[in-house]
Amino acid sequence: MFDLLKFLSRQESSKNVAKERLRLVLVHDRANCSPELLDLIKEDLIVALSKHIEIDQDGFDIQITKTDASNNGLPALVANIPIRNMKRS
């Protein structure tokens, strides 16, 4: 049997995902940040951070996003960096 509510909730979910992807594309565009530049930044961050902490590179993720209105909606770099272990000096 076809469940209309599940179908509609799935569409809403897809709509929100597409909307978020479009928002990220526009922010990247306005920040003038190509995917290649973002990859270079990610590599540099991995090298710098690896001197002090052991990180999970597979879970490492960075994005350009938009700040809130109090910062005039400026682009911001947001990083998700899973830490496996702290290195001892």
Results as ranks from 00 to 15, higher is better:
1 M>L: 09
3 D>R: 09
3 D>E: 12
4 L>V: 15
4 L>Y: 12
5 L>Q: 14
9 S>K: 15
11 Q>K: 14
12 E>P: 00
12 E>F: 09
13 S>E: 14
14 S>C: 07
14 S>D: 12
17 V>A: 14
17 V>G: 01
19 K>S: 02
21 R>K: 10
23 R>Y: 04
24 L>P: 00
25 V>M: 10
25 V>Q: 12
26 L>F: 04
26 L>S: 04
27 V>Y: 08
27 V>C: 11
27 V>E: 12
28 H>N: 15
29 D>S: 10
30 R>Q: 12
30 R>T: 04
31 A>T: 03
33 C>W: 03
35 P>T: 03
36 E>T: 11
38 L>K: 04
40 L>A: 13
42 K>N: 06
42 K>F: 04
43 E>P: 02
44 D>P: 02
44 D>G: 14
45 L>S: 06
47 V>R: 11
48 A>R: 14
48 A>F: 07
49 L>Y: 12
51 K>G: 09
52 H>L: 12
53 I>F: 10
53 I>T: 10
53 I>M: 13
54 E>V: 10
54 E>D: 11
54 E>N: 09
54 E>K: 11
55 I>D: 02
56 D>Q: 07
56 D>L: 04
57 Q>G: 02
58 D>A: 08
60 F>S: 02
61 D>Y: 07
63 Q>W: 01
64 I>Q: 07
65 T>E: 05
66 K>D: 07
67 T>C: 00
67 T>A: 03
67 T>I: 00
68 D>V: 02
68 D>S: 13
69 A>C: 06
71 N>C: 05
72 N>G: 14
72 N>V: 06
73 G>W: 00
74 L>M: 08
75 P>S: 05
76 A>V: 12
77 L>P: 09
78 V>T: 10
78 V>Q: 08
78 V>M: 06
79 A>D: 07
80 N>M: 08
82 P>E: 07
83 I>K: 06
87 K>Q: 11
88 R>Q: 14
88 R>N: 14
88 R>F: 15
89 S>W: 15
